[in-house]
């Protein structure tokens, strides 16, 4: 019995790793540009469909497909920021929400029109089903474990980029005080666009993981957005390690909820989020 619970918690932690990868890009855009991209989940789904197409039509392996999409999503994020989001940044909350909201609906329906409403999944081969038996009733799938370790690696790499590189210092400077950056000659628009390019890279990675591990369809975006948002808020705005912790909490809540009753999985995640949020609205590891 105890082993069963322990196993559930481990599964929750691993699921949290996937959620953390969804949330990483959102955490960056929230921390740096101070806006929540409502289309974040839909962009993850969009890239998942791209990976699906690359694997099915070109016969690429999922890993190769993700590698191919990385530059595409980097420039996609860059251009999205430069051509669209930058125009409404700094004009208050409403325009940026409306624009990303419109984008979300466009992406969802564009995908529906192109791929239809069917549920899809990318085949990951034997890798997908391999399991490690850890004793004590705890089984760990190789794929979830890889995703979890990648989530940790993402935090480490992003932290390094943000706090140890020239680019990172510039990104933090612009996020501190964009008007001051403009005054002293930092090209803030380009820096924001680069940051959004990095967000695009995280989106490609999370899309790669999601498309192998879970089913998705063109309307899966909002649920990914909500989970990512919850992880970001629980972790504390702007803290990447906090985002990972937030993802893990939602993951555990969902798996344990599903254990009580399969239909409770999503509701349990939301309820745990709301409860912790009411107790600690600033999140667990607030940075600002």
């Amino acid at each position: 019995m105890l082993g069963g619970w322990l196993n559930q918690i481990v599964q929750g932690v691993l699921l949290g790793g996937l959620y953390a990868t969804f949330a990483m890009g959102l955490s960056l855009s929230v921390g740096i540009m101070r806006f929540v991209n409502i289309a974040h989940g839909d962009l993850i789904v969009l890239v998942s469909f791209l990976i699906l197409t690359l694997t099915t039509t070109l016969g690429l392996s999922p890993l190769a497909a993700v590698l191919v999409t990385l530059p595409i999503t980097f420039f996609g994020g860059y251009l999205l920021q430069r051509l669209l989001l930058q125009r409404v940044l700094g004009k208050g909350v409403l325009p940026i929400i409306l624009v990303t909201f419109g984008l979300s609906i466009i992406v969802q329906n564009g995908l529906l029109g192109t791929y239809g409403a069917d549920t899809r999944k990318v085949a990951g081969g034997s890798f997908e089903t391999a399991t490690l038996m850890l004793g004590g009733g705890v089984n760990v799938g190789v794929l979830p474990l890889t995703i979890f370790l990648s989530a940790i690696a993402m935090v480490v790499v992003l932290d390094f980029v943000l706090y140890r590189t020239r680019l990172g210092a510039r990104i933090r400077a612009v996020s501190d005080d964009v008007a001051a950056a403009d005054l002293i000659g930092l090209p803030s628009a380009r820096i924001y666009a680069t940051a959004m390019g990095i967000v695009g890279v995280t989106i490609a990675i999370s899309a790669g993981f999601m498309s192998i591990w879970t089913n998705f369809d063109p309307t899966s975006g909002p649920s990914r957005l909500l989970v990512a948002f919850e992880a970001v808020v629980l972790g504390g705005l702007g803290s990447l390690w906090g985002t990972l912790a937030g993802g893990i909490i939602i993951g555990i809540a969902q798996v344990v909820g599903a254990q009580v009753d399969a239909a409770w999985q999503l509701l349990a995640g939301h309820l745990v989020f709301l409860a912790i949020f009411m107790l600690r609205p600033e999140g667990l590891f607030p940075k600002y």
Binding site: V30, V36, I38, V93, I97, F101, L225, L226, F229, E230
Partner: peptide, 12 residues
């Protein structure tokens, strides 16, 4: 800025 998605979570 976060209220939008927060209200969505509550509605969901």
């Amino acid at each position: 800025a976060y209220l939008a998605v927060g209200s969505w979570v509550v509605a969901e």
